[in-house]
Design a protein around this nucleic acid. Sequence first.
DNA 1: GCAAATTTAAATGTCATACAATTAAATGTC
DNA 2: GACATTTAATTGTATGACATTTAAATTTGC
Lengths: 243, 243
Amino acid sequence: MKIDPNSPKDLSAQIAQAIKEAIISGELPVDERLPSESELSEQFDVSRPTVREALKRLAAQSLIRTQRGATGGAFVNRLSFKDAYAQQITTSTLLLSMNAVSFETACEARYALERACAPLSAAKREADHLATMRAEIHRQSQPGLSDEAFCASDVAFHRALVDGAGNPVLSYQLAGAIEAMQPSMNMITFTARSRTEIIALHTRIADAIEAGAPEQADATLTELQSYTVRLANDVIAARAAKA
Amino acid sequence: MKIDPNSPKDLSAQIAQAIKEAIISGELPVDERLPSESELSEQFDVSRPTVREALKRLAAQSLIRTQRGATGGAFVNRLSFKDAYAQQITTSTLLLSMNAVSFETACEARYALERACAPLSAAKREADHLATMRAEIHRQSQPGLSDEAFCASDVAFHRALVDGAGNPVLSYQLAGAIEAMQPSMNMITFTARSRTEIIALHTRIADAIEAGAPEQADATLTELQSYTVRLANDVIAARAAKA
DNA sequence: GCAAATTTAAATGTCATACAATTAAATGTC
DNA sequence: GACATTTAATTGTATGACATTTAAATTTGC
């Protein structure tokens, strides 16, 4: 691992990249201890603060963890699905909010991905995920539920649908798509009528999964997508009319 | 934005989180300049190196960019799709390699997602993406192509299929799923026979997209998935036999 | 001789200060 | 007015010190 003092990049960025590449290539295996900060600063011929900045960059990406104390140091971290979920969600959220992605585009992506899960979920139809879906449907029908709580339950319902596919990689990929949309979903005011409609569609989806009928789940998800987009467009139109 | 000196977390981690939350909430809009490092160190009542560690954490996630010089400083960065792609790919790659995700599971996720794109691509059937797919198919049939080059072309083909859906959010989500599998794909030795088979399937997929026939694309992708898994299993079996 | 208490050493976390490098704006010069 | 120079602000890097944490080594007490 070498760095170039004449590169346009910061030294800390170069060092971080060198270590990152060593981790990706497998040269540094999981749980391996990196040299101490002092040793690294000698190896790369830079000061300790510079090394520390590099290590913080890696820590921010969950590539390493640090421990204090006698046997402490920086260790290569096993990237857990949980950590990856969290990163995926914040990245997706920022991507949508900062790039003026239309509700329709985000919605299209989300439901396309969900339709990808539906056949797998329908094939497995696991009891616990189905139970979660039913429970969330029940919660959604409670009167006096706030719009935020309704949305949160909506997210939980769809996560259960996705997790029902029993593929952690899929769940990870979809976590971002589903949760990143919550801010825009929250702006929708769910009337009693629209809630009834959505609950009916959720029920049909759960039924389709339980029956092992993927085409039906697919079609109902498409219906739900159009309905959601219509609701959002109503909100946008109402706002435009006011202004 | 306040921090707690008695928290178990590092000061730099707390500061990074505080700024991150301000960015996510929109309190700090895109291109806004953060206070200088000296000002931040006064505001948070910590030293400048500590502030810098916090800023490097944010820079590692592409949340800020820094400029040197008189009018320099740290600016809130608009998270571009390109940056998000890159993060998504490294995260996915590490997730697969560090968690002993089976080839079959990763493959299932990948093809489920691709099948999600197929109907959208078939509806749009854009000329340039179709041209890219045809060009990659042609490249794949060149004799003397290395396994690595064949794999790279395979990735390009599938990316074109995905990008053909015309939904940048989908493309972003799928970039990870497709490219993260390249390391495991590279271990497969593609014989002349298997290449012919794969090229035939690719051709049928392109034909289906061009014809606007989503069901056909879906079915062919499923075939390609099974065939890929079979090839991988052969490699694994051959290795086991040797040992 | 063994267990508990203490000391020690190694590592990260934090601070203070200084200087180098870069960049744009202000200033000066012709 | 155009061009060169200076200046000031800001990040990048280095040095050295001290605080804090943690496990291992040592000492002490019985």
